[in-house]
């Protein structure tokens, strides 16, 4: 009974950490970039927000599947396959808040820091990231919660293997199919409560950041 919950939490944690490592540099590039590539990159990275999870799952399956170019990695129907799928699926939810937090930092501040002798690396690590910390925390929470709740992508590339890829959302689907409503209630209500708590924290964080 606890297995799918723990698996979901593990998947969400790993995905969130990977997404933060990806989205902090990506968000910086998108926020500060001036090139013609920017709108294309932005549109491409936002695609997971609008595409149905089945479309993403389908292409990921082609990519990772036995005939795909990444077949040697044996990712399909494995935990790390789920991680890849979740990273792609939740990317815009983490990228967006980080990008807008970086966009909110005035050029003047970073230019002042440069004139004080701070190179690009220190301007990012000592100023931009600490200044954007609320956006980064929001992004992490959103990414975590969104990964917990995903279903389509998981089912497409992970299947439903107990202990390996049967995450919370799949377990709920499973329980309903078995007409085990007690289990479905238990898991669903747990997820509902957890998600609400997370959004509450997020809203509290946002409220603090907009206070004077």
């Amino acid at each position: 009974m606890m297995e799918p919950i723990l698996l979901s939490l593990r998947l969400a944690s790993v995905t969130t950490v990977i997404l933060l490592m990806l989205c902090i540099p990506l968000g910086w590039l998108l926020a500060r970039g001036r090139g013609a590539w920017r709108p294309f990159a932005e549109a491409f990275l936002t695609l997971p927000l609008v595409l149905p999870p089945t479309v993403l799952g389908f292409y990921l399956l082609l990519l990772l599947g036995p005939d795909g170019p990444l077949a040697p990695l044996h990712l399909v129907f494995s935990f790390w396959g789920l991680v890849v799928g979740s990273v792609v699926f939740s990317l815009p939810f983490v990228l967006r808040p980080i990008q807008s937090a970086f966009e909110g930092i005035s050029d003047n501040l970073l230019e002042s820091a440069a004139s004080l002798g701070a190179g690009p690396w220190h301007r990012i690590t000592r100023l931009a990231i600490p200044m954007a910390r609320r956006g980064i925390i929001s992004a992490a929470i959103l990414g975590f919660a969104h990964t917990l709740g995903e279903f389509g992508v998981v089912l497409m590339i992970g299947g439903n293997i107990a202990g390996k890829t049967r995450v919370l959302s799949v377990a709920i689907f499973d329980a309903v199919e078995r007409l085990d409503y007690a289990m479905a209630h238990f898991l669903s209500f747990g997820l509902l409560g957890f998600s609400f708590a997370i959004l509450l924290v997020l809203s509290w964080l946002n409220g603090r950041s907009s206070a004077p």
């Binding site: 003047n108 004139s115 002798g117 701070a118 600490p130 200044m131």
Partner: peptide, 28 residues
């Protein structure tokens, strides 16, 4: 700019608002 050693002060009050006064000075 960061290798010129020419400190620039803009028209805006560009303090690093997430740091204390001491940390602002220590940054320099």
């Amino acid at each position: 700019a960061h290798k010129r050693r020419m400190a620039w002060v803009s028209q805006h009050d560009d303090v690093f608002a997430h740091l204390s006064v001491r940390e602002n000075l220590e940054f320099a």
